[in-house]
Design a binder for these strands. Structure first.
Lengths: 253, 253
DNA sequence: CGGTTGCTTGAATATATTCAAAGTTAGTGG
DNA sequence: CCACTAACTTTGAATATATTCAAGCAACCG
């Protein structure tokens, strides 16, 4: 079968019009002119393995990406190696905006699973703002959404108890994953280790393990195959004292 | 002297051209056409007392503000009253963007001191994006800056020790205050109580008090007149293991 | 099969919270 | 001017929560 059709062997890229994400209810419909621009804005695709660094802190001319497939996370390090995971990135999420706008990345992004990313041409950003105010608005909207997620994460790390934090984190990620169709026929499976959870919640690995153990005993989650399977999203959400994700459709770059 | 000149007695508003913030080195210079638009975009001014709520969580048609004078903070509450302060707002900061773009406020903003705010007409935002791509870009930039501050705060609450957190917080606020000329001839004085600090750091009031006490013994800060006087910003920054604020000029709406 | 990564556990220690109370300061009204 | 109040800071002690240290176990991979 291999290479029988040269066209298929060539590095095929998903055309924006055919982007599987666009048909999801989670995303706003787009004007044709906007879609045309985005097609030109897309410079290529990037495939990354689990553990790969997509964007590194300190990089000064980092590109802009939209995640097409896979899971990743954004984090910062202190000088002695302490790590704080800031947020997770899922399909449809834009990454690298801070670096693109402000000149230097002040956080890193790493793949949690194999990822496929859409690479944008940051030099065309001025053109985007000039000719497509709707898309410009969308980019601001996406930035405001990230801010809102960070607000909630900060509330969690600062003020929720360990078990509430863990429940919140898992409910939050699982809710986002469901919105972009990552649950499929089975329950959502999140490819994170307990070390990732610890570094997100601001807890030690040992304490995180004991906390997750409680969630397992409550039959809210399972931990298997190096990841987390969500058994009862509603009860996790409730245990966290969380309102849940707001429901509106969002833009996709 | 009172009312001798009726023009002076009328509720004078600062014209954007005369805005005292614009002359600071911290802010980018603006095109005349942009300044003209901003003048029309400005709908009025709001004066708030210490303790006043500028924006309330749940509000759905909240306006957009730029702080002209005074100090405030952004926070979220859990249902049982636990409070997390997310960030502080100082002159030149834009507030209410999340609410304006996404429809509903998911955090509140309260005045820490008497404040003067510039109120913008959110209905003209579409016009701004359509006719002033440079300003649209600026708004995105401002959102990205807020995100960057939140990243750093989250790192702090999640991974720094109590004394590092306290040092970071005070150094961070003092650095921002200096940039907008709030230090004057003396050292920076931040009008916060230890309860604010506790709710920012994710610590209890008692533990916060004991931690601040250490900073006082190290002669890094003083606590007086219901506020914090910064004695040694460099050593606070160093103790926090913080890089300091990046130096570029930023946009002002 | 040996090495690596990730999960689990117990015990000792450190950090942080809660509870309770008292001291300080500034403002209010008599 | 003083008594009274409210808001904020300070302290000690008891308790709870979380970290660190130290092992051991399980699964996977070359």
């Amino acid at each position: 079968m291999r290479s029988q059709d040269p066209a298929r062997a060539a590095p095929r890229q998903i055309r924006c019009q055919d982007c599987p994400l666009r048909s999801l209810a989670a995303f706003r419909p787009f004007e044709k002119s906007e879609l045309d621009f985005i097609s030109r804005f897309k410079r290529g695709e990037l495939v990354a393995d689990r553990g790969a660094t997509i964007l590194a802190e300190g990089a000064s001319k980092a590109p802009l990406f939209t995640v097409l497939k896979g899971w990743g996370f954004r984090y910062k390090l202190l000088e002695d190696g302490r790590r704080q995971i800031l947020n997770y990135v899922l399909p449809g999420d834009l990454i690298g905006l801070q670096g693109t706008l402000m000149g230097e990345m002040q956080h890193s992004v790493e793949a949690l699973s194999p990822m496929l990313l859409c690479v944008f041409d940051r030099d065309k950003l001025t053109e985007l703002y000039r000719d497509h105010p709707g898309l410009a608005y969308d980019i601001t909207w996406i930035a405001a959404r990230e801010e809102r997620m960070l607000d909630e994460n900060l509330l969690s790390v600062g003020r929720r108890s360990a078990i509430e934090r863990a429940a919140y984190l898992i409910a939050f990620i699982a809710s986002r994953a469901r919105k972009v169709g990552m649950d499929g026929p089975t329950k959502v499976e999140i490819p994170i280790t307990q070390q990732h959870v610890a570094d997100t919640l601001g807890l030690s690995l040992v304490h995180t393990n004991k906390t997750i153990r409680k969630l397992i005993q409550l039959k809210l989650v399972q931990w298997r195959d190096g990841g987390c399977r969500v058994l009862d999203l509603d009860r996790l959400t409730e245990l966290a004292g969380w309102q849940g994700l707001d429901e509106g459709a969002r833009p996709l770059l």
